[in-house]
Simulated assay, not measured.
Amino acid sequence: MAKGPRSEAVQGATLIAPPFLYALLVLAAPLLTIFAYSFLTDGYLEVIREFSLDNYRQVLGDPIVRSVMMRSLWVSMTVTLVTVVLAFPVAYYVSFVVRPERKALWLFLITIPFWTSYLIRVFLWKVILGYNGVINSTLTSLGIIDEPLTFILYNVNSIVLTLAHAYAPFAILPIFVALEKIDRSLLEAGRDLGESRFMTFWRVTLPLAMPGVIAATLIVFIPTIGDYVTPTVIGGGKIPMIANMIQVQMLDLDNRPLGSALAVTAMIIVAIVSGIFLFLNRRFLKVRQ
C-alpha cells in the first residue's frame, strides 16, 4: 500500500525532531535569554521589574561603543579580504594543478592547523612576533636591525595577521569544493572560442566559484568580528574589540543587561552586513544560490 503524503510528512517530522530540538535547546534558548536580558534594568530574569530600551540607547549613543564597533567591523572585513584573497590561489592550485591522487594529501596538509588548539596558535604568533620572538631574533642575528622591532606586536596589523592565518583553512576548503564542481569542458570551450587564460578565468571560473567565495567570506567574517582571544593576547588588551567590551560588561562589571544589548546589537550589525553582501552578489554578479 502506497504511503500518503501525510504519513511521509509525519516520518519526516519524526526524523528531524531530535536534531531540531537539540538545536533549539543549544542555540535558540541562549540567544533568547540574551535577548531578554538586553531589555532588563536590574540584570535578573528571576525578578523582572521593568523592561526598558535604555541599554540600547546607551549602546547606540556611546561614542566609545561606536568606535569599538567600527574597529571590530574594519578588522573583520580586512581579515576576510586578506584571507579569501590568499586562500583562492591555494584552492585553485590544489583543484586545477595538483594531480587527483595527491589532492587528498594537500587537503590533509591544509587541515594540519586544526590539530592544535586555537589558543595555542594565537600564543605561537605572540612568540613569533614578540620583542624577543623569532622574527626579531632572526633579524638581530643577521645584523639587519640593531634593536628588536616593537611595532609588529600589540597592534591591529598583528591581529589581522593572526586571524587571517587562523581562519585560512575555513576559506580554502569551501572555495576548493566550488572549484572542483566546475565542469572542465566549459573552460576548454572558452579557450576554443579564443579567450585568453585570464579572460576564461574572469568570465567562467570566477563566477562559477563564487558560491565557494561567498561561503568562505561569511565563514570568516561572522566569527572574526566576535573574536575575543586574539585581541586580548596579540593586541595586549590595548586594542579592544566588541567581544572584549561584552566580556567586561558581563563579567568584570556584572552588567549583564548592557552586555546583552551589546551582543544583540553586534549580531544585528553582522546580519545586516552579511545580507548586504549577499544582495550585492545577487545583484551584480548574478550568482544563483
Rank of each mutant, 00 (worst) to 15 (best):
A261Y: 09
D254A: 11
T41E: 15
A9L: 14
L105H: 09
E180W: 04
M210V: 14
K103V: 12
F176M: 03
A171D: 04
I268P: 04
P63N: 11
N132Y: 09
L109N: 03
L285T: 04
Y167T: 13
Y93Q: 05
N155I: 12
P257F: 11
Y56M: 08
W115I: 05
A263M: 09
V79I: 03
V84R: 11
P231Q: 06
F108N: 07
V97W: 10
G12V: 04
P30E: 02
S196H: 13
P231C: 06
A216N: 00
P231E: 02
A216E: 01
R49K: 14
F221K: 13
F151W: 12
I135G: 02
A164K: 00
L153F: 08
T80F: 06
V122I: 12
S7Q: 12
A209F: 08
A104R: 14
K3E: 15
P231R: 05
W74S: 12
R66N: 08
F88Q: 04
G237S: 13
I246T: 09
G12L: 12
S72I: 03
L262C: 02
V65Q: 06
L258T: 06
I225F: 10
A91M: 04
L153D: 00
L119G: 09
V90Q: 00
L153R: 09
A189G: 12
S274W: 05
N132G: 11
V98L: 13
I246A: 08
L206S: 03
F221L: 15
T224W: 12
Q58C: 00
A271E: 08
I120C: 09
S38I: 05
R203L: 14
A104D: 15
V59P: 03
L21K: 01
I64W: 01
A178K: 10
